[in-house]
Design a protein around this nucleic acid. Sequence first.
DNA 1: CAATACGTACTAATTAATTAGTATGTTTGA
DNA 2: TCAAACATACTAATTAATTAGTACGTATTG
Lengths: 127, 127
Amino acid sequence: MRPAKPTLTGQELEIMKVVWKLEKATVRQVYETLLERRRIAYTTVMTMMNILEQKGYLQKQQGDRAYVYQPTQPQSQVIRSMVREFVDRVFNGSAEPLLAHLVEDRHLTEKDLDEIRKSIKSARKSR
Amino acid sequence: MRPAKPTLTGQELEIMKVVWKLEKATVRQVYETLLERRRIAYTTVMTMMNILEQKGYLQKQQGDRAYVYQPTQPQSQVIRSMVREFVDRVFNGSAEPLLAHLVEDRHLTEKDLDEIRKSIKSARKSR
DNA sequence: CAATACGTACTAATTAATTAGTATGTTTGA
DNA sequence: TCAAACATACTAATTAATTAGTACGTATTG
């Protein structure tokens, strides 16, 4: 049996992104979307989506003709736990060094930090 | 042939962390260190370290008895590119949403942000 | 020096990840 | 209606990742 919430692998994440974007989608819809970027077989997408269902990330229901899949969790929540795992794995759980790296890489500006500062304050209020 | 700088996988990163810590190390040293945390075979460590050498992350030289392995790149540099890849993969390259997640997760405090702010300023000066 | 520990090369087993084919049944439009 | 398109279930091939075993040689030490 598969564990309850196994991590999303690379290709699985790609598919989830499409489904989140579309809110709900058939295999064909996802297939068409992915085709715009690269060559892939219809059945490959189907297999992946079924695995995602087994993993608990997607839910399917009978639609007009084909199954319609939809995410079981919002994107933000899933990504949050991916970040948490990454921080655990790479930085042993502390986010600060990650920040340092982001800054060094010039991905972050002072303006970004102001944004963040604000959001911290409001988060604190709502606690 | 292997690509020049393939990404580090989970277990490979664990081994690299040990070697970075020790600065240079034999298979046995890494093996002993990993043993403290979990059961693993000596040859497993050796295999992994040889793969890391093929991938260009480690360099080996003949030591007194055994080969001595050392990192070809500093930890900070490797981790920086792991962060970059993660940001690309999960956030399509923009770091800001990553920040938002870190904050929401309360991994980040205002104090952290002050630290970062300072480091941005000094980075700017040295540009 | 002989037994034991150590080191390396080579091989291999297992599992996960990725991609896709085939068989078969349903729907639909010309 | 019937051929083409579509859908799904089932199976499978390929590659990567992870873990480890075996054979064999060298070093060490009691």
